[in-house]
Design a protein around this nucleic acid. Structure first.
Length: 615
RNA sequence: CGGGGUGUAGCGCAGCCUGGUAGCGCGCCUGGUUUGGGACCAGGAUGUCGUAGGUUCAAAUCCUAUCACCCCGACCA
């Protein structure tokens, strides 16, 4: 039986469908009702644009995504991908999937709810903090919502990979993860729920793992290149694993949460947290000045003190009061000072590597231990307080620091004096972030700092999980060996935000063509008034579709300004405007997204011209 | 966690200080006029003022609690 109304609906909405094959009931399944039509008319798709950005959005990508109706917030850090936004996500996924498959990885899909037992086995049930969302089922059994899938995939491997003959094997999935972030922000870039591609490879040897790692480095570079993003692969070596252990892929953007140190004259690039600050000079000769107490009323920041005393910032020492946490060995919390040069910043990761876990001391603790307020504390005449110092501080002489007396600083302070005895070598280390102008750790130039958004991370896990979870295979000699493992992640949904952060102007989003929700916007002016415009628009639409372009026909009964503004806000890279005025001269207008000046194309060549522009 | 801020129509906001029962812009609906860069005119719909309690003749407004969201967290800017 045929439903005639379907045909009517379809004819109404789909100017280019063929109705011939719908004449028999057997073809009903294939009947091209609206949901089966790939083509898109704005009047029947879903657009929801806003002139003003909701107040919750802080960064430009978040504001634009909300304004363009790509996402809607459901709860903190949790968003619905609206139809237009989903199209972008799907395009990112498609490229990632294609390249992963090309590289020989095999897709699977793991559950997002995972039993606690697996996490207890790997030890992460305890180690993972409150970021891990733990839940219980009706039988009071513990589960978590997976923030990552090492445990599950290792379980898969231990069950199904038994022989070296099955190796190497690389599984990946594109799946929704949940991490209960302390402070979700920036919309989709730091959400709690997000879509990620995560892959895990299993190898019989470390050499083989390294091959796969290199291949993934290349694959990721291909992916981000295809996505049309300006990116940089940076070393994120943790040191504990060594070698080429870990790389992050960052999309370069001003608003990025991470700072990247790179050397323009070599290929060195590293997350600032890991880039070593090379000491520039040795221990200085003896100081020329003697310690002097100077009044610095109300001046608590290095910058203020330096200006007030008329000293360069590099001659100040900042003292950061910290408390070393008690550890498993049973040591009690210890109050200490960490010294940095006035123009340097503390690197918490480097610091905790030297002195273990620590936190910043409260004002109270500072008062208890030093009888002083923050802003005026310092290492000189500080009694028995343990002192740690960045290497660059040890190269200073005749410097200034807090006098441990509210409203006063010392000048002319020197190491190795009665006022400030030398400290032992194990308390001198690299404690600071590198800054622009520092020498590159590879000795081949000067570092510069750029900001980036981490969108990919590749990591050599080695046998960490396979050993913990007893995941082994039999080698050639029939001996059980733990798998060498690698893991490789790409933040699918974060990429959408990052791409917008990198591509936007005062009119809205400027999507890279590869991930724009549509490639071409067809904007007819007077579609509902002029037969000439409508038939020209419909036939061009049909032709463009047949060429395989992702085209949206804006057939809404709106004023041209509204349609132009919406298509620009959405970041559609190419636009064809068809109007009665142009048709009289047999022309249409073509304009690409960032440009402001249209080009005239003859109506009959327009599609051909577009093909040569786009292909 | 600690500190600060904000919750009023779908979105952006005013009203709160000095209690008297809710308003503006955008959007939405109807009719008309418009139609190449977010139109105009006329009419219209929409709120348990985040929630719960309290004070009061009377609470968006004052008090208490609570929830949600946003921002900040070092001798960082």
């Amino acid at each position: 039986m045929i439903f005639p109304q379907f045909r009517e609906i379809c004819e109404q909405h789909c100017p280019n469908h063929s109705i011939g094959n719908a004449d028999t009931a057997s073809n009903l399944v294939e009947f091209p009702v609206k949901s089966n039509c790939s083509h898109m008319r704005a009047s029947t798709f879903f657009l929801s644009t806003l002139k003003e950005a909701p107040a919750e959005a802080e960064v430009v990508s978040h504001q634009l995504m909300l304004r363009a109706g790509l996402i809607k917030r459901l709860a903190g850090g949790i968003y619905t991908w609206m139809p237009m936004g989903l199209r972008v996500v799907r395009k990112v996924e498609a490229i990632v999937r294609e390249e992963m498959n090309r590289a020989g990885a095999v897709e699977l899909l793991m559950p997002s709810v995972q039993p606690a037992e697996l996490w207890q086995e790997s030890g992460r049930w305890q180690k993972y903090g409150p970021e891990l969302l733990r839940i219980k089922d009706r039988h009071d059994r513990a589960f978590c919502i997976g923030p990552t899938h090492e445990e599950v995939i290792t379980d898969v491997a231990r069950r199904d990979l038994r022989s070296y003959r099955q190796l190497p094997m690389h599984f990946y999935q594109i799946q929704t993860k949940f991490r209960d972030e302390i402070r979700p922000r920036f919309g989709v870039m730091r959400g709690r729920e997000f879509v990620m591609k995560d892959g895990y490879s299993f190898h019989a040897s470390y050499e083989d793992l390294q091959h796969e790692y290199m291949k993934m480095h290349e694959t990721y570079s291909r992916i981000f290149t295809r996505l049309g993003l300006r990116f940089r692969a940076v070393s994120a070596d943790t040191g504990s694993i060594g070698g080429t252990g870990s790389h992050e892929f960052h999309v370069l953007a001003e608003s990025g949460e991470d700072a990247i140190a790179y050397c323009p004259s070599s290929d060195y690039a590293a997350n600032i947290e890991l880039a070593e600050a090379i000491p520039t000079s040795d221990r200085p000769g003896p100081g020329k000045e003697t310690i002097t107490e100077r009044a610095t009323p109300g001046k608590t920041k290095c910058q203020e003190v330096a200006e007030y005393l008329g000293l360069p910032l590099q001659l100040l020492v900042k003292s950061i009061a910290i408390v070393r946490e008690s550890n498993d060995a049973g040591t009690s919390p210890e109050f200490a000072l960490v010294l940095l040069r006035g123009d340097h910043d503390l690197n918490e990761i480097k610091a905790s590597r030297v002195m273990g876990p620590f936190r910043f001391a409260s004002d109270e603790e500072i008062n208890t231990n030093m009888s002083c307020k923050p802003g005026y504390i310092g290492p000189a005449r500080a009694g028995a307080i343990p002192i740690f110092a960045d290497r660059s501080v040890m190269a200073m002489r005749d410097f200034a620091c807090g006098a441990n007396k509210v409203g006063f600083h010392f000048t002319g302070v020197n190491w190795g004096t009665g006022d400030l005895p030398d400290i032992s070598a194990d308390r001198i280390a690299d404690f600071r972030n590198v800054k622009s102008g520092d020498p590159s750790p590879d000795g081949r130039g000067i570092l510069e700092i750029v900001r980036g958004i981490e969108v990919g991370h590749i990591f050599q896990l080695r046998t960490q999980y396979s050993q913990m979870m007893k995941a082994t295979f039999l080698d050639k000699n029939g001996v059980a060996q733990p798998f060498e493992m690698g893991c490789y992640g790409i933040g699918i949904t974060r990429i959408v935000g990052a791409a917008i952060e990198q591509g936007h102007d005062d009119r809205g989003i400027v999507f890279p063509a590869a991930i724009a929700p549509f490639t071409i916007a067809l904007v007819p002016v007077g579609y509902h008034k002029s037969d000439a415009v409508r038939s020209a628009a419909d036939s061009m639409y049909r032709e463009l579709e047949q060429c395989g372009f992702d085209v949206i026909l804006d057939d809404r009964d709106e004023r041209p300004g509204v349609m132009f503004a919406d298509m620009e806000l959405l970041g559609i890279p190419h636009r064809i405007t068809i109007g009665e005025r142009g048709l009289k001269q047999q022309i249409v207008e073509y304009q690409s997204r960032p440009d402001r000046e249209p080009r005239h194309l003859p109506v009959q060549d327009a599609v051909g011209e577009l093909r040569s522009i786009l292909c």
